[in-house]
Structures are given as structure tokens and as C-alpha cells.
Design a protein around this nucleic acid. Structure first.
Length: 106
DNA sequence: GCTTTGACCTTTA
DNA sequence: CTAAAGGCCAAAG
């Protein structure tokens, strides 16, 4: 746990704390950063972050939809990444938050 | 130094 | 109940 004053590093750290096969939401991450309604900056931080240094593919929106899939190499990269991790998807193309929703409990 | 945009969420009408 | 607008904070132009 590093207390980096940089907003990026904070988001990167939390996202990096997400175990494989699990997914988190922007709201939870934002709430963890003491900024409940500022979930936008979380996604913005990930966009500015390097996908190779931060597992941004494990971060989804409140509905489990892959909102940032277009920021990856290809729109299907994010889906492929999560599937490779063992994450299951619903018929709507959203992640099964009921099974893989991670609330940073550990 | 001000304006616009951003991988969203919450609340009010 | 559904729909719409506001808000959050920061970075780039």
C-alpha cells in the first residue's frame, strides 16, 4: 500500500489490487478514493494509464458493461481478457457481477 | 488562466 | 415507475 498523492497511482493501485477472475466498478473504486460521485475521474485515470501496467480490463461500470472496451487494442480485447481470466458474461454482453463483483473486501 | 472533455454515478422531476 | 439533468475532480488545448 503506497500512499501516492497522485490520483493516477491511487486508481492504479486499487485496480491492481483486483484479483484475476474478478471485476470491480468505477463507483466502488471512486468511493474507495473518498470520491463517491466522481467515478468519471476513475475511468479517465485508466484511460491515461497504461493498460499494460494496470489491469483496466477488470474495471467495468455499474451495470457490468464494458464501457472502456474501445480504449483497448480492439473492442473485443477487453471481453477476451476477462474471459481468459475466467470471468463469465451474461447474454446482454455484460459481466456477471453476481459472481465476479469485487468490492475490495480483502 | 479559462474552457472543454472524460472508460460514470446520484438525485430530482 | 421512467426520464433527464447535475455533479464530481482533474488534465489537456
Amino acid at each position: 500500500m503506497q500512499q501516492t498523492p497522485d490520483f493516477f497511482q491511487q486508481v492504479h493501485t486499487l485496480v491492481s489490487c483486483i484479483p484475476p477472475g474478478k471485476v470491480s466498478t468505477y463507483g466502488i473504486i471512486a468511493e474507495k478514493l473518498s470520491i463517491r460521485g466522481a467515478a468519471r475521474m476513475v475511468g479517465w485515470a485508466l484511460s491515461a494509464a497504461d493498460l499494460e501496467h494496470v489491469p483496466a480490463h477488470r474495471v467495468v461500470n455499474r451495470y457490468g458493461a464494458l464501457t472502456g472496451k474501445m480504449h483497448f487494442l480492439t473492442p473485443e480485447t477487453m471481453r477476451d481478457m476477462l474471459e481468459a481470466e475466467g470471468v463469465t458474461f451474461l447474454d446482454d454482453g455484460t459481466v456477471d457481477l453476481e459472481r465476479h463483483l469485487f468490492g475490495f473486501e480483502g
